[in-house]
Design a protein around this nucleic acid. Structure first.
Length: 568
DNA sequence: AAAAAAG
């Protein structure tokens, strides 16, 4: 038996008290997000934050105490058989033998810690928090250590996945220990699997008590992608995974008189809220054990029409005593981190590599195109020179997406466009055609900027300059996924100067060359930055057809004509 | 500015 094996044997025995944990969390939660009077403002006023901090300190003390108590028997882990390695200390203390053996145990422990540190360093895993379980190095460990259904493991192999990515190595054991976490890992590095696998492992098997896992995504396209991923993973295991496609139909399916025969729900926020707000509520989330917020920084977006309030409503609806929360994204704002530190229970944060950086598998270029009209010229140039499809083209607004589509549709290439103003049917069709290669060039808004995993996108073209470095990172993350190579070209004009510096820095940090003068630009004030995110620079219309050739439609031509001002 | 419920 090698040292590591011996260590593991010694570590077995201490059980993690989920039940007790859950009750604490329940009390914790009520005092945190809102209250009975229906205040659902996440992380609202400073005053409340102060109170919360007090509660938190008290709770921390309590936790430490309960951690030392080894709970055995029925109520211990509710059958998850989780090992809690921190018990090794106690075992060493209690060893009846002489000091010699004791010190050799200590040496073993030290060696083990060194090994763990090495694994984390090699995989650029940075962790923050108390009592963090060791990373796993193989998917098989999920079966041996955490009782993952062997069929799921088989499904993994069938999908050609052989070993976990860094985020999976660390996030999976954390979730298996029921730890609330904030995870930040690059685009295309396997975050979806990092929460889907432990979710399936923790739920163990189908149960007829309503939804126990909920995953929230910012777009329907991402929700449906995650849904399909879950279906594939859980094939043959019997979990009932659902997605809300028609809110009105769903009301009947999940309402108070339903049979509760479902396990996992994937949804966008508003559809879920629509169900929650019915009287009586058309869905019950009180049995939820895991609430996973994908693209968490996006869903934390504040403001009158932001997602944040919606998320708060959902948090409150997950009122069960066992609810655990996990946040995943490629980018993380100080805001989200602050909220998690204050509101999550004994938070662990996991970062893979440096936060808010672009992947280095994308060859990134900035291209000066002079004026708005220069973009169209440069775009046609790319097409004329020949490019390797599929290509994704990002623009800033729905209107501009439409305009660019009209300009390119006659170029003899297979081009289509997707944005939130298209029907669900159209959106689904477009995504499917792009996936199957029927469309070579897909023009899109921020709708496709996050999370979407198209295999083998060869070029991401930022036709319009992104409004922030974060948006840039997500857009170009549609290519260069899972270690593959990708390319991104970003057009810029004189108008885009304010944000040029911050995006040039992202590019430089990822190891791609940028002209020195850009990085030398003055840093813009954060106030200006925020304003740019909300109000990107005004761009003239995308159109090359002289006005006298334009068809006018109906009586509204005065309004219509205004759109077609010829860009000089 | 985009996204998110139907209709």
């Amino acid at each position: 038996m090698d040292a590591f094996e011996l260590f593991r044997k010694l570590g077995v025995g201490a059980k993690f008290d989920l039940k007790r944990f859950g009750q604490d969390a329940a009390r914790f939660k009520v005092s945190f997000i809102g209250s009975e009077d229906g205040d659902s403002d996440i992380g609202g006023k400073r005053k409340r934050k102060e109170e919360e901090r007090d509660v938190r300190t008290k709770k921390k003390k309590k936790k430490t105490k309960s951690n030392q108590v080894e709970v055995k028997g029925k109520e211990a882990t509710q059958g998850t058989g989780i090992t809690w390695t921190s018990s090794l200390d106690r075992k060493i203390q209690n060893l009846p033998s002489d000091g010699k053996e004791k010190s050799s145990m200590k040496r073993l422990k030290h060696l083990h810690q060194e090994k763990v540190n090495r694994i984390r360093a090699q995989n650029r895993i940075n962790v923050h928090g108390c009592d963090i379980p060791d990373p796993v190095c193989t998917f098989e460990e999920l079966q041996s250590e955490y009782r993952l259904n062997p069929r799921v493991l088989q499904n993994l192999r069938d999908a050609g996945l052989s070993s976990p990515t860094p985020i999976q190595m660390q996030a999976m054991p954390l979730m298996m220990h029921g730890r609330e976490l904030l995870a930040c890992a690059p685009t295309g590095s396997g975050k979806t699997l990092a929460f889907c696998l432990p979710l399936l492992a923790q739920l163990q098997q189908p149960a007829n008590q309503g939804f126990r896992g909920v995953i929230i995504s910012p777009t329907r396209e991402l929700a449906s992608q995650t849904y399909r991923e879950l279906l594939r993973l859980s094939e043959g295991v019997g979990f009932r995974v659902h997605i809300i496609d028609k809110a009105s139909l769903a009301a009947k399916k999940y309402g108070p008189r339903s049979n509760k025969k479902y396990d996992i729900l994937v949804s966008t926020p508003n559809r879920l809220i629509f169900l929650l707000k019915q009287d009586p509520p058309a869905i019950d989330l009180s049995s939820v054990e895991w609430l996973i917020v994908d693209e968490s920084d996006k869903l934390f977006e504040d403001g009158k029409t932001g997602f944040r309030e919606q998320l708060a409503t959902i948090f409150l609806a997950c009122s069960g005593p066992k609810v655990r929360r996990a946040f995943f994204s490629a980018t993380c704002t100080a805001d989200v981190e602050q909220w998690c530190r204050l509101n999550l229970d004994n938070l662990v944060s996991v970062n893979i590599g440096h936060r808010n950086t672009a992947v280095d598998t994308v060859d990134q270029q900035l291209l000066f195109v002079g004026t708005e009209n220069g973009k169209l010229v440069a775009m046609r140039d790319i097409i004329k020179k020949g490019f390797l499809p599929p290509m994704l083209v990002f623009v800033q607004t729905i209107e501009r997406a439409r305009e660019l589509f009209h300009e390119l549709v006659y170029e003899g290439i297979n081009v289509d466009v997707i944005h939130a103003d298209r029907t669900q049917q159209q959106r689904d069709n477009v995504v499917n055609s792009f996936r199957s290669g029927k469309i070579w060039v897909l023009i899109c808004t921020a709708l496709l900027a996050r999370g979407i995993d198209f295999k083998g996108v060869n070029l991401v073209l930022n036709y319009d300059f992104p409004t922030s470095a974060v948006e840039y990172i997500h857009r170009i993350g549609r290519t260069g996924r899972a270690g593959h190579q990708g390319k991104a070209v970003t057009f810029f004009t004189e108008n885009d100067k304010p944000l040029l510096r911050s995006i040039a820095n992202v590019i430089k940090q990822a190891g791609c060359p940028v002209p020195d003068y850009m990085v030398g630009f003055k840093k813009i004030h954060s106030k200006v930055k925020r304003r740019l995110e909300k109000k990107p620079p005004k761009r003239s219309t995308i159109c090359t057809t002289p006005r006298f050739l334009m068809k006018t439609k109906g009586k509204d031509q005065k309004k219509g004509n205004k759109k077609y001002i010829y860009d000089k």
